[in-house]
Simulated assay, not measured.
Amino acid sequence: MAYKIGEVAKLLGISSETVRYYEREGVIQSQKIDQGSGYRYYEALDINALMRVRMYRNYGFTLQEAKEMLNFCTLEDIAKRLEDKKRELQAAVDWNKRLLACADRMINIHRSASEMLWKCQIEESPAMYRFCYQIQDQLIGDPEIQKRVQIWTEKMPVVMPTPLFAKDDILAGNKNFALGLCVMEEDADFLCLDPQARGMEYVPSQRCIYTAISAQAGELLHCGLFQHVLQYMDAHQLELAGDAIGRTVSTLHRSTTQERIHQVWLPFSKKTSDFSSGGLTLKAL
């Protein structure tokens, strides 16, 4: 029995134009064209072929691949192609699972940054692998670094931007900073990260002063943004013990300006003071 193109389209839940497209691509061939009305007619075998092609397409095969599997492949050929596709699908599942985990992390990051903007608290910093690709407003010209930027950018949000502020620059209030990309330690194996790659740095978790800062449009990051942290350290008899590492949380576009929000962790140690009395030196710990 032959069926009109509209009947085939309705049965499969597609448009008549889609049926015509599959015919133009050689997936099916109308059995008869009514010369008077121009109606195209298809048999049940054509309907079954369209169903099979749609199944292959739902796996992620291209139309050309689906045509080959329908018309030319043996059962073993199809099985091998499905094995390859299974590996691709599993990789996609693993990636989406990682994205779900990152979504939870990013929810917490955004809320934490909102609560901690220009505030301070003591906490453990996240362990991460990072590398710098920009010093001030100048990109690092190393081709290997630039290639890694391209590769890592494709892996966002598992990869995040990360600013770095040198200890001496913070203490001096200099307008210096570096930008890079980072991967949290728990994601390193998933991304098959090479810790020995040029410029790669491992930053272990440590006790830090945690804060969130913002920079407005046209304002470069600079170490003067940490005066509130230095005041907090002075008030609690603490001192800066190393470079500050951060994560860029978000860029907020407004009608007249742009704001960039960063989380930053600054390592600290207890201040030591020398008191000389009768040749005896006491250190306050």
Rank of each mutant, 00 (worst) to 15 (best):
Ala188Gly: 02
Tyr202Lys: 11
Asp274Leu: 15
Asp243Gln: 08
Tyr41Val: 03
Phe268His: 06
Cys223Asp: 10
Gln134Glu: 13
Cys132Ala: 08
Met156Arg: 13
Val249Pro: 03
Leu63Pro: 14
Leu12Val: 12
Ile209Val: 14
Tyr42Ser: 07
Tyr59Ala: 01
Gly180Gln: 13
Gln237Cys: 15
Lys271Asn: 11
Glu144Met: 08
Leu230Arg: 10
Leu117Pro: 00
Glu76Asn: 13
Leu70Tyr: 14
Ile261His: 10
Ile5Pro: 05
Leu181Val: 01
Ser273Asp: 01
Ala188Ser: 05
Ile5Glu: 06
Leu266Ala: 09
Gln134Ile: 07
Ala178Lys: 15
Val203Met: 09
Ala66Asn: 11
Thr257Glu: 07
Ser255Val: 11
Gln216Gly: 07
Ser125Phe: 01
Arg148Ile: 03
Leu100Val: 03
Lys86Ile: 11
Tyr42Asn: 08
Ile78Arg: 02
Glu154Trp: 00
Gly278Arg: 14
Val149Trp: 04
Asp194Lys: 00
Ala9Met: 09
Gln216Pro: 00
Arg54Cys: 02
Gln231Thr: 14
Gln196Thr: 06
Leu252Ser: 07
Val27Cys: 14
Glu219Trp: 00
Phe268Pro: 04
Gly278Tyr: 04
Ala235Thr: 10
Gly60Lys: 13
Lys67Phe: 14
Arg40Ala: 01
Asp189Glu: 11
Leu252Tyr: 05
Leu45Phe: 08
Asn174Cys: 05
Lys270Asn: 12
Tyr22Leu: 07
Ser114His: 03
Phe131Pro: 07
Pro143Glu: 13
Gly13Thr: 08
Ile47Trp: 15
Gln258Asn: 11
Gly242Met: 11
Met106Lys: 09
Ile78Met: 04
Met128Thr: 05
Thr257Ile: 02
Asn71Ala: 13
Val19Cys: 04
Gly199Arg: 07
Arg52Ser: 12
Gly13Asn: 08
Gln134Arg: 15
Gly6Asp: 10
His228Trp: 00
Asn58Trp: 11
Ala44Gln: 14
Leu179Trp: 07
Tyr41Cys: 00
Ser273Trp: 05
Met156Lys: 12
Ile151Trp: 01
Cys102Asp: 06
Tyr42Ile: 02
Asp94Glu: 06
Glu239His: 15
Leu282Asn: 05
Ile47Ser: 15
Ala197Arg: 05
Ala79Trp: 07
Leu99Pro: 00
Gly173Pro: 05
Thr248Gln: 15
Trp118Ile: 02
Met116Ala: 04
Glu25Ala: 10
Leu240His: 14
Ala284His: 10
Val149Ser: 08
Tyr22Ser: 12
Arg81Glu: 15
Ser16Pro: 01
Ile151Cys: 02
